[in-house]
Simulated scan of single mutants.
Amino acid sequence: MVAYHEEVMASLVEHGERSRKTGKDLFEHQAACWVKLQKVHGPVIVRSGSQRGFLERLRGGETMATLSSNAWDPALKGVLADLGLPDSLLDVARFLHDALFDPREVLDLTKTAGLPDEQVVRRLSDAFYGALTGWASR
């Protein structure tokens, strides 16, 4: 299952690397791909979830956390820049992104709530921007 999850994350890394988008546009481009990936791969990814938090796993060098960081960090850094927030909030952006875009939650919104992919991307992205801005103001 880990190899399967790694393959999914590697495809997301490649998706982002092929894009010429930046900032929020890159973030939402990645988010749209992520939501689509969850429809196919989410049920398997959910089963291989860790009991440890994202930042702990990233700092410990866990492969999945590192791949996720590789896939999302350029977009997260771009969001910080677009929002006029300092790069020092990258770990906060990682944490908030991981919490909001968890495969379980994406599947809940698409399958259980029946929201179209575009609404899931828009709502989660807006929630992410708001949470990040709110966190930065404290």
Rank of each mutant, 00 (worst) to 15 (best):
L12K: 04
D73H: 04
V35S: 07
D73C: 05
S125E: 11
D126Q: 14
Y4W: 05
H41M: 10
A10S: 13
E56W: 04
D82G: 10
E14M: 12
E56P: 00
G23V: 12
R123A: 05
E118F: 00
L12F: 04
S11I: 01
K24S: 11
K24I: 15
K36Q: 14
P74W: 02
Q119H: 01
H15Q: 11
V44I: 09
N70Y: 08
A127G: 06
V13W: 10
L107S: 06
W135I: 04
A127T: 13
G42L: 13
S68Q: 14
Q119K: 06
A127W: 10
Q51W: 02
Q38D: 12
G49D: 06
G114H: 05
T66M: 12
P103F: 02
V92Q: 07
V13G: 10
D102F: 13
M64Y: 00
S48A: 12
L67A: 02
V121N: 00
L85C: 14
R52E: 15
G130R: 10
R59C: 00
M1V: 00
R59Y: 05
P74Q: 02
L132N: 06
E6K: 08
Y4D: 03
H97M: 12
E28Y: 03
F27Q: 06
K77P: 00
A65H: 02
Q38N: 14
T63S: 08
G42W: 11
E6F: 03
